[in-house]
């Protein structure tokens, strides 16, 4: 039984266009042009309990809108979503008690006071029994290593510490589903790693279903066995990250380093038909090689002799994603 069921979900909204300059402002008083945008367009998918799903997509692709639709903050224009058996936009209290939303760019902690106060507020809002509340806070604080920060005013904490506390506050009612919008944005590498580790632990030990959007490929690679690529409000890909990589980049990156510069003519004959990467070093040769030909090409190179180093790597996911999103709308069919 899937916990999230999305069926032909669509969301469009209207806004006014504003013209620049003083004259534009004045004209805007009389006449404004109204435009309609489809933020999410005909989305269908399912998520099983305990899955971790990553949403990938450029800015404005509809990732955040999708999360908000699933939380129940937005009414769908057409289609429907079913989460934990509830229709999200009705925002029934029994539904809200089972989900949590964390947005990396917005904080829900009270700024001037220690996080403990916000936690106590949540204790009353979610009607948590004293003993359970204490246990959860202690447990989460220990995993997140923030026990000693709970009594410090939030404004005195670093960004990374604040994010960890945001997570603690969001999870204090032990939600079944956690929605995360850019949870690691602005954090340094170490803090990003901590947040990822925590989310993985949470998923493994509590079985929490996690849906997250992120700009950082590392987040997705580390956390999400399953990714959905959304662009222009539509689902472009849904499946394993490794499948996405194979589909976009059906080749590997092969690098050979020779003991001395090689004759360009020899190389040209050798790698005919392959993609040669530009290189500053005449002894270094980088190639994009189709997966099926990797072994053969590597063998051919080795047969040349004087090869001191040979490496075969996956193309970095960053590069692949960049490639996906630089393509014009609909220009690249993934599914």
């Amino acid at each position: 039984m899937p916990v999230i069921l999305v069926d032909h979900l669509a969301k469009s909204y209207r806004f006014y266009r504003k013209e620049p300059g003083l004259r534009g402002s004045l004209r805007g008083l009389v006449h404004r042009e109204m435009l309609e945008t489809k933020a999410v367009n005909d989305l269908s998918f399912m998520v099983e309990q305990g899955e971790v799903v990553g949403f990938l997509g450029p800015n404005g692709a509809g990732k955040t809108t999708t999360l908000k639709l699933l939380c129940g903050l937005l009414y769908p224009s057409t289609g429907q979503a079913m989460v934990l058996g509830y229709t999200p936009h009705r925002r029934e209290h029994s539904y809200l008690r089972q989900i949590a939303l964390v947005m990396g760019q917005k904080n829900m902690l009270w700024w001037d006071i220690p996080a403990m106060e916000t936690l106590l507020m949540h204790k009353e809002m979610y009607r948590l029994p004293e003993a359970e509340f204490k246990r959860t806070v202690d447990e989460l604080a220990e995993i997140l290593e923030v026990a000693q920060l709970l009594r410090v005013q939030v404004r005195k904490l670093s960004l990374g510490e604040r994010m960890k506390l945001e997570l603690l506050v969001a999870l204090v009612h032990r939600p079944q589903i956690l929605f995360l919008d850019e949870p690691t944005i602005g954090l340094d590498v170490v803090a990003q790693q901590r947040v990822r580790d925590f989310l993985r632990t949470l998923n493994r030990e509590q079985g929490t279903t996690i849906l997250l959007t992120s700009h950082y490929m590392d987040d997705i690679e580390a956390l999400c066995p399953r990714v959905m690529v959304i662009d222009h409000g539509q689902l472009q890909f849904d499946g394993k990250l490794s499948m996405l990589v194979e589909r976009i980049a059906p080749y590997k990156l092969l690098t050979a380093v020779f003991a001395e510069p090689v004759e360009p003519a020899v190389v040209a004959a050798m790698v005919a038909g392959l993609d040669v990467l530009p290189s500053d070093d005449p002894r270094r040769l980088g190639l994009h090689v189709p997966r099926t030909e990797v072994a053969e090409v590597a063998g051919r190179l080795l047969r040349l002799g004087n090869v001191v180093d040979l490496s075969i790597m996956e193309v970095p996911v960053e590069d692949i994603i960049r490639q996906v999103f630089s393509a014009p709308a609909g220009g690249k069919e993934l599914v």
Binding site: G21, L22, S25, L26, G28, L29
Partner: peptide, 12 residues
């Protein structure tokens, strides 16, 4: 002044 007039129109 012009910039502030524009801002003000925004919040008329």
């Amino acid at each position: 002044v012009a910039m502030n007039v524009m801002m003000t129109i925004e919040y008329r």
